[in-house]
Amino acid sequence: MANSIQIPNNQKQVPVINPALFTVWLLIVASIMLFAAFCSAYIVHQTDGQLNNNWKEFALPLEFWLSGGIVILTSVFIEWAFQAAKKDNINILPALFTITMILALAFCLSQWFGIQEMISKGLFFRNENSDEISSSFVYVFVGVHVVHIFFGICLLFAGIFKSAKLKIHKKNLLFITICKTYWHFLGILWLYLLLFLYFAK
């Protein structure tokens, strides 16, 4: 039996982080690298385009800023859920998960409206004029981020079920910690992208 092992005094105890949570952190690192690649490509193209006069600056649609607000709200709710679970206040967890998920769907909706707004302004993903390459990037940022959101929604969906079965509580915080970590990351990522697009000029 593993618990009957004699640990000699001079042997160091190996520090334990939960491997699953650690794995999520590594996934976040990988995702950061992906967006780092996109951002550096953006900067390279921008510098190039400004030299050749074929880089169009445009204001981001208001909907994207709105979705920035929504993403902050989701983070607030998931953090609330986490604190509640920590205090074993588990009755309200399903409700909090549901609210977070609805907000996440609202986020996707506002992204959709943002894209519609861009299309109506004549800023396409498909490149027909030289200046539109700047708008192509916005589509890529939004699209790849929404794919991340999709996985987050799957997590929240599982969370609703788990919390309804009372499987998330003070002594089993792993799942909700993962949810929380991932959603905070998504929120910070979107806010970063917004600020990046706003300030990188």
């Binding site: 650690f22 590594l26 996934l27």
Partner: peptide, 16 residues
């Protein structure tokens, strides 16, 4: 991701 996670977190006693 799995490899890193395993090496960092799942070493046996004494395996510094």
């Amino acid at each position: 991701i799995n490899y890193i996670s395993t090496i960092l977190n799942m070493r046996t006693k004494g395996m510094s």
